[in-house]
Simulated scan of single mutants.
Amino acid sequence: MSTRTEQRLPGGLPAEPPTDELWEAVLAADEHTATSVVLRALDDGVPAEDVLLGMIAPVQRRVGQEWAANRINVAQEHAATAINERAVAALSLHPAARTTPTRGGITVACVDGEWHALPARLLAEVLKLRGWHVDYLGAQVPAPHLITHLHRTDADAVALSSSIATRLPTAHAAITACQAVGVPVLVGGAAFGPDGRYARLLGADAWAPDAGTAADRLAGGPLCRPHPDHQQIDDLPHLADQEYTVVARSSTSLVRTALAALEDAFPAMRTYDGPQRERTAEDLAHIVEFLATALYVDDEELFTGFITWTAQILTARGVPARSLPPTLDILARELKDFPRATRILQHGATALGPFHRSTARNHV
């Protein structure tokens, strides 16, 4: 159960966060108005946690949805995120958000390579409101630095956040390192799957789908301390076949080979200028990176989810997704001696069928 106290307006009606007003300010890149909307909501009696989770968090989700649908560009998405981060900072200084720690300590951090820090910041602020002493370390925290911090503090748990699935191997290393020094780990974020399947696979002590649930879980009692003899390889015995290691280490050559083969399949690519070639190489690198991650967790659904999402992103931008199936075929030929990799690529090609047929119809 949440520990927050519901605030009510005169007449007994609950105070509602002005989410639409915040969205309009964020969309207009109006930091002053956005911050004012948040502070006014607090002044009007909306609980600080409701502002964080019922106002700022939904607006940030909408930012991602609008970018995916190509209704806002990357610069607008970055500006909107920065404004939301500024709104959280302003909220944290408001008298309505000031609390005295009455519970233990939680360290909140993003795994190394994860730059989406806002979800972790929202959790940190919710935990403060719930009475925890919080050390918020921010984005991209290398595991050795995280462990150094834990040695200097007395954290009851670590809350690790990751939004991008390709950070799962790094998250696994961080989880194992924290547990090795006796600190249990709660994880959250889209990287761990909508049902937390990768959290369980990687040996995390707890998983939560959102900041409110995470705070409830931590308030419900201490997480189990990990066994000191736990080894990372114990979680993923399939890694013994070395497929993940080979694909991860040969990613540069795989991208180079795929790019050359695609130019043969699509001669128009030979006229690409420098920036176009660079973007294409980046797209190929993402495909290889997600393939490697799918090998790490031995789950083709992770890859098919990424490749169909990529097709949707391309389609929303008016770019035909017809180059994706040949790309997967090229990679499958290069990795023909790796059964798990070829199986994952075949599943990805099958999942792209509807996009490929739709593209073909549009070009008849």
Rank of each mutant, 00 (worst) to 15 (best):
D329I: 01
I287C: 12
P326T: 00
A321E: 03
L314W: 06
S323G: 08
G274T: 09
A268C: 08
A294I: 10
D337N: 05
D299P: 11
M269G: 00
F290H: 14
M269W: 01
I330W: 00
L324V: 01
E300I: 04
L302H: 14
R317K: 09
R279W: 09
P275F: 02
R279G: 09
A321M: 03
D283R: 05
T271G: 06
P326V: 00
F306S: 10
R333P: 02
R279N: 12
L291R: 11
T342M: 01
L331H: 00
D298E: 15
L302V: 10
L284V: 07
R333T: 08
E289W: 09
T293P: 15
T308W: 05
A292H: 09
R270S: 11
I313Y: 13
A292I: 09
Y272V: 01
R277W: 06
V297I: 14
E334G: 02
Y296K: 08
S323A: 11
D337L: 02
I307N: 05
A281F: 12
L328T: 04
L328K: 05
T327N: 01
E289H: 12
S323E: 05
W309C: 10
T304E: 11
E301W: 13
T310Q: 15
F338P: 03
T315D: 03
L328C: 06
F338I: 02
T304D: 12
T315Y: 00
L324F: 00
F303N: 06
P326A: 00
G318W: 06
G274H: 10
K336W: 03
Y272A: 08
A311L: 11
R340P: 14
E300M: 09
P325L: 00
L284I: 06
L314D: 04
I287Q: 09
L295V: 13
Q276Y: 03
Q312M: 09
Y296Q: 08
T304R: 05
A321H: 07
P325C: 14
I313C: 08
L328S: 07
G318P: 06
I313T: 10
D337E: 08
V297N: 12
A316I: 01
T315C: 02
T280R: 04
G274I: 08
P320N: 01
M269K: 00
F306I: 15
E278G: 03
A268V: 11
A341I: 07
D298H: 13
D337I: 04
S323M: 05
D299V: 12
R343P: 01
G274W: 07
V288E: 08
I313K: 14
D337H: 04
A294K: 11
W309L: 13
E289G: 14
E278N: 09
L291F: 09
W309Q: 13
G305Y: 15
T342Q: 04
P326N: 01
V288M: 04
A332C: 04
I330N: 00
R322G: 03
P275K: 07
E334M: 04
F338T: 08
T280N: 06
R322N: 02
I307L: 08
E334R: 05
G318F: 07
E334Y: 01
W309R: 14
G274V: 09
A281Y: 10
Y272Q: 07
L331S: 04
Q312P: 05
D329N: 07
P326D: 00
E278K: 11
